[in-house]
């Protein structure tokens, strides 16, 4: 078989159009000898498919399906040669990445905007007519003043970054939300723990305030929030994010990072899990609970 014929067969297969005769022809070949070529063709088709994809039109994975996939993964890796392990060299503490990304994006666009403004100002002066009375020294000074003024203006327009505590206060004030108090369960890590949790269904965001929960070593274990949502099987609560308690013993405010949409929380639970958190909790150690109507 010629190389071109092999290429044609691989393209036909990649696009689902191998007829019976060609399937047999391909099956008769030494698969290992064209494995790389096969993948190259598959990657080309995938890249072209991505080029047609509209990122803005992508839908979110349905919550139930997300849970089923996570369950499948658990079963798969339980039987795989390499079992599922706690997170390795790139630990994820989940409450913060999304807000950090947003901040980075904001900063990046701000820098771009500043760049354009400064460039515009510079261009304005560069194209001043030659007979203009402005000397080179004065020109530099004016450019510096423009730059300073722009920076000052941007600074004035940039909202100050809120701490989680401030963001919580602002959220509660804007929607008259009532926080639910945590109830500490009989676990050594939760002795004397207190605080509350607040959730805005409108903004799909919330915060936990926690005091007195035992500080953890993230390499040994981490805390994980679970949200039991109305109309969802209680066996599969929503993962609200993994977090740590620092050793200083003070109060901490932690943004909730629900992995999927939460409609109407019926119960919040904090468990102790392996580093990195788990897909489905075994619920061996539940340390905090908060339930609406049980203040």
């Amino acid at each position: 078989m010629t190389d071109q014929r092999l290429l044609d067969l691989l393209v036909d297969r990649e696009t689902g159009d191998l007829d019976r005769k060609d399937r047999i022809a391909l099956a008769g070949m030494d698969h290992d000898s064209f494995l790389d070529l096969e993948d190259d063709m598959g990657l080309a088709a995938a890249a072209a498919m991505l080029a047609f994809e509209d990122d803005q039109a992508l839908e979110k994975l349905p919550a139930e399906l997300h849970i089923h996939i996570a369950e499948d993964a658990k079963v798969f890796f339980a039987n795989a040669a390499v079992p599922l392990t706690a997170e390795q060299d790139d630990p994820v503490v989940t409450p913060f990445p999304s807000s950090e990304s947003a901040d980075e994006k904001d900063t990046s666009s701000l820098v771009q905007w500043l760049g354009w403004l400064v460039a515009a100002a510079v261009i304005t002066f560069v194209f001043l007519p030659k007979e203009d009375v402005v000397s080179p020294e004065q020109r530099l000074q004016i450019e510096a003043e423009v730059r300073t003024a722009i920076l000052r203006d941007i600074e004035a327009q940039t909202p100050p970054e809120l701490t989680p505590g401030e963001a919580r206060t602002q959220l509660m004030a804007s929607q008259a939300l009532e926080p639910l108090p945590w109830q500490a369960l009989p676990d050594v890590a939760a002795e004397g723990a207190s605080g509350d949790v607040v959730w805005s269904a409108d903004d799909k965001q919330g915060f936990m305030r926690i005091k007195g929960l035992a500080a953890n070593n993230p390499e040994e274990y981490q805390y994980q929030l679970w949200i039991f949502d109305k109309d969802r099987d209680e066996k599969f609560p929503v993962d609200g994010g993994v977090f740590d308690i620092p050793a200083d013993g003070g109060e901490v405010v932690i943004p909730i990072n629900a992995k999927i949409a939460v409609q109407e929380p019926q119960l919040y639970a904090v468990t102790i899990e392996k580093p990195g958190g788990v897909v489905v909790s075994g619920r061996e150690r539940i340390v905090l609970l908060a339930k609406p109507g049980q203040g």
Partner: peptide, 13 residues
């Protein structure tokens, strides 16, 4: 591929 649970989660997300 190493069975890292956190990576599996992030991959689904």
């Amino acid at each position: 591929a190493q069975g890292d649970q956190g990576a599996v989660k992030t991959c689904i997300d």
